[in-house]
Design a protein around this nucleic acid. Structure first.
Lengths: 340, 340
DNA sequence: CCTGCTGATGATTGCGTTAACATCTGCCCG
DNA sequence: CGGGCAGATGTTAACGCAATCATCAGCAGG
């Protein structure tokens, strides 16, 4: 019997009518702008409550040309890294009052990225974060050049789009240095897929640290981030008893490696030390607990969104090319002194 | 020197002007509706390409009252279950031509859920999938009752909103039955947090299967899904040598359990069998490889979105209360015959 | 040769909101 | 006591698109 029309929700005009004012006045109350008398404001506010008024975001966006929404483009959120990054960004964005629209692309190539970006543009997002962990995607970032601000996360630098990321090279160096510090002659490496930028950066860091220490640089094994790949690599490494230390490019491969070594009777860390990368929540409970490199994804999200926010808000703000967040080493049971 | 105004992108009116037709005709070409002569259509299409026209989704939504977007409400996407469910839903939705807006809620209570749902409503989503794995959220689902169709995923049944989920009870029964089949007198249980519906359903299934088999029902231990909780429970269980089989409510706790048992010198599966739940990608590489229950989240997503799509499209479609997807048992190395 | 229909196209209006400008009331001050 | 100014409110138009109705030409059938 009240006037809650079932189905359609109340619009600003309904509120105006009910409060006996013009639509514009309601809008002013809504946005806390302009001069509205205390009395009118109260009347309007009561009316809004009465009809359970909720402003229509789309209409506002259309009128304003801004949507208070940012878009996130990502690939394979099932992976720990990208998945955590999305989560961090999502949180940070909400905290700043942005809505978030997420688009997962099917393949990490130029076209897919392009179409994802366009589709976000169609939705009038105010800005985007592109999680582009693939070398192949870097080129595509260059071509975006629409008016919409873009921040790339975990991407290769391309000179057009500012980048936010975790310092993969430093992480790899920390891991390698840690192992060398235990007296290992050198450190072997199970790398991630070559198409992933993070993979390359981690390998580079490992190589650089070995070089700095004057240690030999063994040929790295390749993997695809999965535990199975780590297992396969482990089976190869187990046979070679010159191998005493391994830096594996992520924790899941680390798990597979540990499994293989266990099967082959190679004791960790007595016979072989292992350090991973990521610090997944499970890594502390591997057998043995995995030493690894921790990345702060929440911070990554905050930094990315903060940067994007500034880009969106302030027209003539010029961002730094690159913002790197330092990772930290977590030492657990899988790394120890070289066997004598 | 071409007419690509930098900054603003072309609108339908621009295309119309360029093609020398009315806006309406462009709209018709765009939506492949109405009668447009072959000739005009071509002219319009050329014009669209020339100015790189992209329809503005918001404007269309506002005009149509539909947005071709579905909203997803979720809690804690970092958890394997909810995270995978989101991924499955996202994929399925895109396949059906829907955009996806994801909202993560901070706390799993009535208010947070309500405000998430309202905010999606403000964005004019055509429908929503609410991943509501908490008992506390079930009540809130009842109150939604807006015009927007809602499907709940992994939620408790409340009679208002159709549910899509994986048959947790069946999964628990499969795991328990598998262990009993090895001759274990009974099966112990490490449960998930009581506030989680899945947790309760898994415990119930375990209990029911034991009861059906006439086996004793030991008091379950409680955990919070984390490996640490599994570890703690494992330390308790290891001391009790009447325990020969454990059904643990998820794989991460399973990992912790294995870790604890290893530390205490309890051999798996010779001294104790373990079966988990989830089949995370890593579970096959635990030490020993974990027997577990696999859930098909991709399928869950498809089913949820298909149902929602029908609800959105067909006004007088009435959905079934509940759609359950059967999980499957994956037998690996962590389960075996009872010690004699 | 007119009626009536069909196919192609255009004009108008509305979706819900806000910006920009217009109007109106008091009231201060010279 | 009138000019002018500030505060409060209203009016109009625009954002980009599509539904609805109108228009117009061509053409078959009586």
């Amino acid at each position: 019997m009240s006037d809650s029309r079932s189905g359609k929700s109340a619009t600003l005009v309904d509120v105006a009518r009910l409060a006996g004012v013009s639509a514009m006045t309601v809008s002013r109350v809504l946005n806390d702008r302009g001069n509205v008398s205390r009395e009118t404001r109260l009347r309007v506010e009561r009316a809004m409550e009465q009809v359970r008024y909720r402003p229509n975001v789309m209409a506002r966006s259309l009128s304003l040309g801004r949507s208070q929404t940012i878009g996130v483009v990502t690939y394979d959120t099932a992976q720990y890294g990208p998945g955590s990054a999305v989560l961090g960004i999502e949180r940070a964005a909400r905290e700043r009052g942005y809505g978030v629209t997420i688009t997962a692309i099917a393949r990490p190539d130029h076209d897919a990225l392009r179409s994802a970006v366009l589709s976000l543009d169609d939705r009038m997002v105010d800005g985007m974060v592109v999680i582009a962990p693939f070398t192949a995607m870097a080129g595509a970032l260059r071509d975006l050049g629409r008016g919409t601000p873009v921040v790339a996360a975990e991407a290769a630098h391309q000179g057009e789009v500012p980048i936010v990321g975790i310092d993969q090279g430093l992480g790899a160096r920390l891991a390698t240095r840690h192992l060398l510090g235990f007296g290992h002659r050198t450190v072997h490496h199970i790398a991630g897929p070559i198409e992933w930028i993070e993979s390359r950066l981690r390998s580079d860091g490992w190589r650089a640290e070995l070089a700095d220490a004057g240690a030999a640089v063994p040929a790295p094994l390749g993997g695809d981030w999965t535990a199975r790949a780590g297992y396969d690599a482990g089976m190869r490494l187990a046979d070679d008893n010159s191998v005493t230390a391994v830096f594996v490019a992520n924790d899941q491969m680390g798990l597979g490696l540990l499994h293989a070594l266990h099967e082959r009777g190679v004791r960790v860390p007595q016979d072989m030390s292992v350090v991973g990368f990521d610090d997944t929540p499970e890594s502390a409970y591997f057998l043995p607990a995995l030493s690894t490199v921790r990345q702060d994804f929440a911070r990554l999200g905050e930094v990315a969104v903060e940067l994007l926010d500034r880009l969106v808000t302030d027209d003539d703000f010029v961002a730094d090319d690159k913002l790197l967040i330092p990772p930290s080493l977590v030492v657990r049971a899988s790394s120890g002194p070289a066997p004598s």
